[in-house]
Simulated assay, not measured.
Amino acid sequence: MRALDLTASSPDITRAICDIPSVSDHEGALADAIERAIAPLPHLEVHRDGDTIVARTDAGHAQRVVIAGHIDTVPINGNVPTRDVTIDGEPYIWGRGTVDMKAGVAVQLKLAAELVDPAVDITWMWYDHEEVAAEHSGLTRLAASRPDLFAGDFAILGEPTAGLVEGGCNGTLRAIVRTHGVRAHSARSWIGENAIHAAAPVLARLAEYRPRTISVEGLEYREGLNAVAISGGVAGNVIPDLCEVQVNFRFAPSRSEEEAVAHVRGVFEGFEVEIADLAGGARPGLDAPLAQRFLQAVGGAPRPKYGWTDVARFSRLGVPAVNYGPGDPLLAHHDEERVPVAQIEEVERGLRAWLTAR
């Protein structure tokens, strides 16, 4: 494998790291390439934990920022290696990971190599296993083994935002709402009780539910409560005795995890509810002077992040965090995943201006 050339342009680095497959559970080759490229740089202290690479400056500045990006992707589906395409006269890089989120990682790698004397100290994090359950995430593992590496005054996660700033994120809750019945032969259905039929009020409540839009520190977060799966049934001639409706609640960062749980239990009062997964959101944290300077450097009005991202991990540790990276989030995981070259270059310009302003 050829070594990563961090003197190349950020679009070229994007092409290079996208062409190193790194589907979750198989990030080792890319982590090795990043470590080999970063470790020799004298201005960085490098730490590796599994397939997570952390590189830090330590110039004694009064403030430190953390800039992170995950290196894994969802499975490849004929979209590696990358190729250059032109759409409406605009050049794009097409291929798995270009949007989510190797273009952002490429910008970070280039800046990590070149910013020998930034205006603030920087902790760069490139981590594994973001696209799978949170318990496997490199950040989960790193927070347990080296929580000190998360220290900072502000954090940026390079998730795709089309080059705009998305502050904080919604929380997410997944619940299983169960109904029970009694099995019987379907030819004698009156002997049993149909658990699937009993779930009809659950679906009715979801259909009637009107989600709120909640303002948090000037950003409007849209909530949502939706069925995402339903299961039940034993055989084609058996009245089912169990039905499970999986429900996903996306809630504004103004709600605590406990408040989100109470809300869902209230909506489905009278039914058995199991909370299967829960992650709190993150407030925008854009009022700090360091964050204001960031907004001025990159330009544009901040927006809310509706999906959950790892900014919530930093928020939980008291570090305000935003999402900022190239790529249309609607194309994340899409087989036609592609990123505009101009967005990669603009995100690099914005971050460079902010990190070097004195």
Rank of each mutant, 00 (worst) to 15 (best):
339 V>S: 10
105 V>W: 12
200 A>S: 14
244 E>L: 05
30 L>G: 05
68 A>Y: 02
257 E>C: 07
81 P>R: 12
104 G>W: 02
49 D>M: 07
326 P>Q: 12
86 T>R: 03
72 D>W: 00
314 F>L: 11
114 E>H: 07
254 S>C: 10
142 L>K: 08
279 A>L: 09
325 G>W: 02
279 A>K: 11
309 T>L: 11
342 A>H: 14
42 P>K: 06
14 T>K: 14
199 A>R: 10
130 E>P: 10
209 Y>W: 07
278 L>W: 08
294 F>I: 04
302 P>T: 02
53 I>E: 08
234 V>S: 06
261 V>M: 04
61 H>V: 03
262 A>S: 08
298 V>M: 02
184 A>P: 11
102 K>D: 01
45 E>T: 15
100 D>F: 03
143 A>Y: 10
7 T>W: 03
341 V>S: 08
312 A>C: 14
351 L>C: 09
329 P>S: 07
211 P>K: 03
337 E>G: 11
356 T>C: 13
93 I>K: 03
197 H>P: 00
177 V>S: 04
43 H>M: 07
189 S>T: 10
44 L>M: 05
36 R>Y: 09
6 L>V: 07
244 E>K: 06
168 G>L: 14
349 R>M: 10
167 G>T: 12
310 D>C: 00
114 E>S: 09
112 A>D: 01
338 R>G: 09
62 A>Y: 01
68 A>T: 08
324 Y>N: 09
291 A>K: 05
278 L>Y: 02
28 G>T: 13
222 R>E: 10
173 L>D: 12
334 H>N: 15
347 V>C: 12
246 Q>G: 12
26 H>S: 14
168 G>S: 10
174 R>K: 11
161 T>P: 03
322 V>M: 06
145 S>I: 05
284 P>K: 08
337 E>C: 04
59 A>L: 15
34 I>G: 03
190 W>I: 06
145 S>L: 04
163 G>W: 01
90 E>K: 13
319 V>S: 09
103 A>R: 06
80 V>I: 14
105 V>C: 15
160 P>G: 07
131 E>V: 02
90 E>N: 10
150 F>E: 11
8 A>G: 14
239 I>M: 07
357 A>D: 15
96 R>P: 00
173 L>H: 13
53 I>A: 01
152 G>W: 13
142 L>N: 02
221 Y>E: 00
135 E>K: 13
75 P>Y: 01
56 R>W: 07
116 V>T: 13
325 G>T: 08
